[in-house]
Structures are given as C-alpha cells and as structure tokens.
C-alpha cells in the first residue's frame, strides 16, 4: 500500500517541529552549560561567546559530583533489578491466578498510588531509623522499589494478560513447572513490557527527590537530584546556572543511553510476532 507523498512530507515536518519544540529547553541547557553564570544572568538568551568549560572543571574538581553520580547509578540499577523481578512475579500471579484477596491487593496497589507522600514520609523515616535503614543506599533502593511497585505491577499484569495462556498451557502439558513456563515462555514474550518497567523504574529512582532528600543524611551518600538542588540553588532561589546546567547535562546522560538501548528492543514487535 502506497502512502501519498504529501502525507509523508507533512508527517515528517510535523515530527521535526514537535521534536524541536520539545527539546528547546534542553538546547538552552546545553548552551548554558558552556557559559559563565554571570554571562547567563546578563544575557538570558544567548550563545556561548567561547567554548567555556569552567563549569565542568568546577563540578569535577570542587564538588563531590563523581561520587554522587556513582551513588545514583548504583541505587537506580539495583532498584531497576528489584523492581523488574518483584513486579513481574506479582504481575504474573495477578494475570494468571484467581487467588484469595486478589481484589484487595489490586485495589490497594492502585489506591497506594494516590497516597500523598506527606502522609508517608514521617512514618517511613521513623521506621527506617528503627530498622537502621536510614542513611543507607539499600534503604533508598527499597523505598524506590516500593514507589515503583503499584504502577509497574499493573503494567506487567496488562502485558501478561495480552500473552495468550495457551502457550503456557502447552508448556505445562509438556511437563514444565509453572515457574519454568513463566521463565521460558512468558517472560521472553513480555520483553517490551519489562523494558518499559525497567526504564520507568530506573528513571523514577534516578529522578526521585523527596525521599532521597530526607533519607540520605550524609552529603557523600546523596543522589543527583538532591545534589543538583542543594549545590547550585541558594538564598531566595538564586541559581548558579552555569554549574547547574553542566551538572544537569551530565545527569541526563545515563537515561539517554538507556533510551538508546531500550528503543532497539521496543522496535521489532516481539509481542506482535508471538500473537501470530
């Protein structure tokens, strides 16, 4: 089937325009990363006069950026692994079994999305203090995993529901255990869903602010969002734009790499092939 040429042209132009508008704030951020703060203040919208790298050398030499970056990375990666394992198990159970209390669990998972953070944060802090999880990377990992469970679990459930039960039944008849059927048959078909959950969880953990702010006492254990907000924002909201832009730019790199990677798997329609 041929598509009209005009449609093709219009569609292509719209994409470019939309992408440019969406990315405009980021383009500014990139330009500002190579300008001095004083210059940004005197000219809000401007190109760098010269290729100024002082902001980058400042954050590497004068701040704990590398260390904080490592913290964030470890926390996000471990959270992603935990999140995928925990929520694909629960998603599978919800999609395949009619267990007692299923409605309660589903309702609760959904409702817990609506719990305002302020209702939780002090209770969690007290609990963490008692459990000794306060100020530990592992404690924050568990918190971020908790935050991702309601959404990711529901997403996994939807994906598993879209995979025909006949495939597993065939495997079960062939003598597989249920868990093996999940691992060998269902799991590979759910890759797009798992990648979506993984990306979501990584970004949730990478970007999360309030819990990280109150749970990580030591500056050396902070995560990037807290670091960006505490190191470059001062009295009355004055911003060290140069350093902040540079640090924010570096902060965006891992998610960008993940997008590049996750993309390739989303394309190709694994699910599509399986349903056929």
């Amino acid at each position: 089937m041929k598509t009209k040429k005009s449609v093709v042209v219009i569609a292509n132009i719209s994409v470019v325009v939309i992408i440019f508008l969406l990315l405009f704030p980021l383009i500014m951020l990139i330009l500002n990363a190579f300008r001095e703060t004083g210059d940004i203040y005197s000219k809000p919208l401007g190109l760098p006069d010269e290729f100024y790298i002082g902001n980058f050398s400042y954050i590497f030499k004068q701040t704990q950026f590398t260390r904080i970056f490592r913290n964030s990375f470890i926390i996000a990666i471990v959270t992603t692994l935990f999140g995928i394992i925990v929520t694909s198990l629960s998603g599978y159970a919800i999609s395949r079994f009619n267990f007692k209390g299923k409605n309660l669990l589903l309702g609760w998972l959904l409702a817990s999305q609506a719990f305002p953070g302020i209702l939780l944060v002090i209770g969690i802090f007290t609990l963490y203090n008692k459990l000794g999880l306060y100020n530990s990377l592992f404690g924050l990992v568990i918190l971020h995993t908790m935050s991702t469970i309601p959404f990711s679990s529901s997403l996994m459930t939807s994906y598993f529901e879209s995979i025909p039960i006949e495939l597993e039944e065939a495997a079960l008849i062939d003598g597989c255990t249920q868990f093996k059927a999940l691992r060998k048959v269902v799991f590979p078909l759910a890759i797009p869903g798992i990648i979506a959950v993984g990306t979501f969880t990584f970004l949730l953990s990478w970007n999360e602010f309030l819990f990280a702010l109150v749970m990580m006492r030591e500056s050396a254990k902070q995560t990037l969002p807290v670091f960006l907000n505490t190191s470059f924002v001062g009295t009355g909201g004055a911003v060290e734009w140069g350093s902040l832009s540079a640090a924010a730019l570096l902060t965006a790199l891992p998610p960008i790499l993940i997008f590049l990677f996750a993309q390739r798997y989303l394309i190709g329609g694994l699910t599509k092939g399986a349903i056929k």
């Binding site: 007290t126 203090n129 306060y134 702010l213 109150v214 500056s219 505490t230 190191s231």
Partner: peptide, 25 residues
C-alpha cells in the same frame, strides 16, 4: 565533624523530618 550540605529552600523538609523521626544532625 561531618558536613551535610543543605539548601535554604528545602531545609524545612530535611530538618523537620529528621527531628520528628528522631535522628537529626
């Protein structure tokens, strides 16, 4: 002495949570 850097805009959240939770700086 172990330094903890805070920021004016979010010091309320940090301090009040840690005071109420029982583990302040």
């Amino acid at each position: 002495i172990n330094l903890i850097w805070g920021t004016w805009e979010t010091s309320d959240e940090f301090l009040q949570t840690s005071y109420r939770g029982g583990n302040p700086p």
